[in-house]
Amino acid sequence: MIEEVFSIELPVGERLVINKNRITGKRPLNKRIAIVTGIHGDEFEGQYICYEMARRIMEAQEMLNGIVDFYPALNPLGLDAADHKIPKLGMDLNRMFPGKKDGAMMERVAAAIVEDISGADMCLDLHASDIFVKEIPQVRVSEEFAEDLLPYARLLNTDMVWMNATATVHESTLAHTMNMLGVPSMVVEMGVGTRIDRGYGDQVVEGIFRLMKELKMWEGPVADIHYPAISTDGEVEFIRSDTIGVFFPAIAHNHYVQKGDKLGEIVSPLEGRVLEEIRAQKSGLVFTLREYPFVREGSLLARILTGIEEG
């Protein structure tokens, strides 16, 4: 059932509306999972996952034990304009939580989202990468909650779980807020901005069903999943540009490399020459690879997960 979570009046003939789709199975009081996406308006991967999850659950609703709430568009103005942030305000919605019920417009939106999800037994916040780099499906959890979340994160059929320690950034996010409120919450990230990779989407959908099985919310069949590599910040090698130009990757994304392998090159369109060859400093899995060709000094080109072997 489509429900309006929150609405607020824009200046000219329109409301900003947050909708959710609540699918209720047997024993609604059993458990509730919230699947949210669209906090960043240029990240569309979650749209497919919401669609596919809802479609499959509705086809076999008798298998559902509890409630699944889908929130496909938490930043509807951003999604409509493919804007990562909140249009006009220029702020990142995922740095505004827990919001403020009697605050400014988007603070109220954030507070309403938090209030609506509160009490759920699990929250999954689905993100694509931004438009600059492509990511393999991964779960990101802050170290603060890792002990509680890792058993669930492993079930999501992603390739990797990244325990990330940047607390400053996490503190204003939806996932951090919900975890602080006692709702186990995980961020799932995959793909690249403004695109949908249905292969990645299907992979995560299977993982969500597996997680729901674990939570005793899904009685239907679930596919075999593979378990992710678990990593910490120390095992991730960041490769950044030392020059300006246009980056051409020399490898495929989600690819194992050996130390010294060529990852790509940065060229000058004006001068017609290669400015820099990018080589792996360590062996491992290239789980992040640049998609956006223009680079400056410091631009992220790739991230390599070290300390794992090609499987």
Binding site: I8, E9, L10, L16, G103, A104, M105
Partner: peptide
């Protein structure tokens, strides 16, 4: 010139 509901 314009303002949305809830704006300061």
């Amino acid at each position: 010139a314009l303002i949305a509901q809830g704006d300061m």
